[in-house]
Amino acid sequence: MALSKNMRGALFMSLAMAGFTFNDAITKLLTADLGVAQLIFMRGVVASVLIYLLARHRGAMRSWRRAADPWVMLRVVGELGGTLTFLIGLSHIPLANASAILQGLPLAVTMGAALFLAEPVGWRRWGAIIAGFIGILIVIRPGLDGFSPYALMIVGTVLFATMRDIATRKVDPEIPSLFLSTVTAVAVTLAGLVLIWPTGGWDPVSAPELGLIGLAACLLLVGYHFIVGSMREGDISFIAPFRYTSLLWALALGIVVFGDYPDTYTLVGSAIVIGSGLYTLYRERIRSDEMPASHAPVRHSP
């Protein structure tokens, strides 16, 4: 039985989150010895080559002039800003904390969809969005012991990623997802190269570190491809909550790899954010059931 567009989008989102979270764990390990910009560049070189070859194989490459499309460029800016802010923050705070803050992204995307894509969001979901942001504040715990200013970098990641996801929905559907992924990977890689020397220069890289960078790049390929595919399938408000699967991976990897056990603030705040996101999903499903078929949004395949 064929999956619906919403279910395909949910599956793609779950796969993307697994790829990104394992990549994040490897990257966090590597930041102990290598600079963030150098990691972005080295990981990006491998990822860009892999994505480009896959795009060529599937006939997804288009004229590079399509990369100058304003929505494509805005998507690249969002991806670049999100990558920089997240890796800087991740190198200084536990993986689970960074992931917990990032769980506010589905709520931010739902809010962005209402403001910029005219998707209807009622007062109940607006209330859930506010509650979710309160949960993020609990994780960040401003003014309390345990507060790290680097947690605010992850808040910046949420804003940049929201920009990226909204821009993805506005990109011409004739532009293949793999072409978007290739353009994004190349742009982020070049930005990493430019930033290496202003941020501390080049650090020596061992053979094991090269292997981990290659693995991280492959996982990044999985994340890049499926995040684009998920945003172009079904309704954002249905698909976005499946980002929460990344928190499960982050909690497990944080304990097993780094020995970081989440504290009460992180667990309570995460529960509030996830609960708020799941409630928005519940309200969206009710709205979809009540919507006449003639008013249902029309979606186009990539």
Rank of each mutant, 00 (worst) to 15 (best):
Ile129Val: 06
Ile129His: 00
Ile130Ser: 10
Ile130His: 06
Phe133Glu: 11
Ile134Asp: 03
Ile134Tyr: 05
Gly135Val: 06
Gly135Pro: 07
Ile136Ala: 14
Ile136Gln: 12
Leu137Arg: 10
Leu137Trp: 06
Val139Phe: 09
Val139Gly: 12
Ile140Arg: 06
Ile140Cys: 08
Ile140Ser: 03
Ile140Gly: 05
Arg141His: 10
Arg141Gln: 12
Arg141Ile: 02
Pro142Arg: 01
Pro142Ala: 00
Pro142Lys: 00
Pro142Asp: 00
Gly143Cys: 07
Gly143Arg: 04
Asp145Cys: 04
Gly146Tyr: 11
Gly146Trp: 12
Gly146Glu: 11
Phe147His: 09
Phe147Asn: 03
Phe147Glu: 07
Ser148Arg: 03
Pro149Asn: 15
Pro149Gln: 15
Ala151Val: 12
Ala151Thr: 14
Leu152Lys: 04
Leu152Arg: 01
Met153Gly: 08
Met153Phe: 15
Ile154Asp: 13
Ile154Met: 10
Thr157Leu: 13
Leu159Thr: 15
Leu159Val: 15
Ala161Phe: 14
Ala161Thr: 12
Ala161Gly: 10
Ala161Lys: 10
Thr162Tyr: 05
Thr162Lys: 00
Met163Asp: 07
Arg164Val: 06
Asp165Cys: 01
Ile166Met: 07
Ile166Thr: 04
Ala167His: 03
Ala167Tyr: 06
Ala167Phe: 08
Thr168Trp: 02
Thr168Glu: 03
Arg169Pro: 03
Arg169Lys: 12
Arg169Thr: 04
Arg169Val: 05
Lys170Ala: 11
Lys170Cys: 11
Val171Ala: 05
Asp172Ser: 14
Asp172Met: 12
Glu174Arg: 09
Glu174Gln: 13
Glu174Cys: 03
Ile175Ala: 07
Ile175Gly: 04
Pro176Asp: 10
Pro176Asn: 08
Ser177Arg: 02
Ser177Cys: 06
Ser177Trp: 01
Leu178Thr: 01
Leu178Met: 05
Leu178Phe: 01
Phe179Asp: 08
Phe179Glu: 06
Leu180Glu: 11
Leu180Val: 13
Leu180Thr: 12
Leu180Met: 15
Ser181Asn: 00
Thr182Val: 05
Val183Ser: 09
Ala185Met: 13
Val186Ser: 04
Val186Arg: 01
Val186Asn: 02
Ala187Lys: 09
Ala187Thr: 13
Ala187Asn: 11
Thr189Phe: 00
Thr189Met: 08
Thr189Val: 03
Thr189Gly: 03
Leu190Lys: 12
Ala191Asn: 04
Ala191Pro: 02
Leu193Asn: 00
Leu193Ile: 03
Leu193Lys: 01
Leu193Trp: 02
Leu193Asp: 03
Val194Asn: 01
Val194Lys: 02
Val194Cys: 00
Val194Ala: 07
Leu195Met: 15
Ile196Arg: 07
Ile196Val: 15
Trp197Leu: 11
Trp197Asn: 12
Gly201Glu: 12
Gly201Leu: 15
Asp203Asn: 09
Asp203Pro: 02
Pro204Gly: 13
Val205Trp: 08
Val205Arg: 04
Val205Ala: 09
Val205Phe: 05
Val205Ile: 15
Val205Asp: 08
Ser206Leu: 13
Ala207Phe: 05
Pro208Thr: 05
Glu209Ser: 13
Glu209Phe: 02
Leu210Tyr: 14
Leu210Gln: 11
Leu210Glu: 08
Leu210Ile: 13
Leu210Met: 14
Gly211Arg: 10
Gly211Thr: 09
Gly211Phe: 09
Gly211Asp: 10
Gly211Met: 11
